[in-house]
């Protein structure tokens, strides 16, 4: 079953003078299967975040076909699939405590209030921050804030999880630990994940499948299935990520040559 599918997407921004338009996507197509972890890999500025915003419903100014489906069982009636989003910055409401930040999205997501406290305690416990439930975001470290942000995305029991370089603002040690934690949460919850990154190593470690986004207007230039075990220590992971880097740079170099 397909959870996310985009077909023949066309999207343009007005250029800086506002006279002409810049094509971001022209004929972009991709799909993510149910419960699949897909990493979208590309250089900065290639339109990865724009794509995620379109899937997340923040940007509706495009043409083409976009379909999202929930992975609920046949007996449950779900119309709109629920989306959990983890941004590059934590984007927690600074005037709410950790607990209330989670409550906020449960309320806006229309989740029955009798489930709130059990969901919040479950997810705060899973990210190891139950003790900090009454803290305000500014009292937490960067890594802890991003953990809250991840818990917030999971707590609404989303059909699809969108992540926009969630670990790029963290130091490497924290990032590494949090990638492991994320995989654990993902295994426990079996969510469909679309994860944007420019970090080849991260993509190889996390993904079931990597989609390389390249060339402007951007489209999926390559698709790389990842079938190695998710293990930081494995030699294979390192080799794969080096190979992947070459691949991504290759498309970039191709573009540069094309321009000259």
């Amino acid at each position: 079953m397909t959870a996310v599918s985009l077909a023949e997407i066309r999207k343009a921004f007005p250029d800086q003078e506002g006279t002409d338009e810049v094509l971001v996507f022209d004929g972009l197509s991709l799909s993510v299967r149910d419960r699949e972890f897909v990493c979208l890999l590309g250089e900065s500025g290639c339109g990865k975040s724009t794509l995620l915003n379109m899937v997340g419903g923040l940007d509706r100014d495009f043409s083409g076909h976009l379909a999202l489906e929930g992975n609920a069982g046949p007996d449950s009636v779900k119309t709109d699939p629920r989306i959990g989003y983890v941004f590059q910055e934590h984007r927690l409401l600074p005037w709410l405590s950790v607990y209330d930040n989670l409550k906020f999205v449960l309320r806006t997501g229309g989740i029955p209030s009798d489930l709130w406290s059990s969901s919040i305690s479950l997810w705060l416990d899973r990210v190891g921050l139950w003790e900090f439930r009454n803290a305000y975001p500014h009292q937490l470290s960067g890594g802890m804030r991003q953990r809250v942000s991840i818990a917030r995305a999971f707590v609404i029991d989303p059909d699809i999880l969108l992540m926009d370089e969630p670990f790029s603002g963290l130091d490497e040690f924290t990032g590494r630990q949090m990638r492991e934690e994320l995989l654990q949460l993902w295994r426990q919850s079996q969510k469909t994940v679309l994860f944007v990154t420019h970090n080849c190593f991260e993509a190889c470690y996390l993904a079931d499948r990597i989609l390389i986004l390249g060339n402007r207007p951007a489209r999926v230039t390559d698709e790389v299935p990842v079938d190695i075990p998710r293990d930081y220590e494995s030699e294979e992971l390192f080799e794969r990520s080096v190979g992947l880097t070459r691949k991504v740079l290759g498309t970039g170099l191709g573009r540069l040559r094309g321009q000259s």
Partner: peptide, 20 residues
Amino acid sequence: GLIDMARVFRASRAVRGFAV
């Protein structure tokens, strides 16, 4: 960014205005 966050998590216009 906070307004976008609220939109993704389906906050209505009124909620975005009053709570964000």
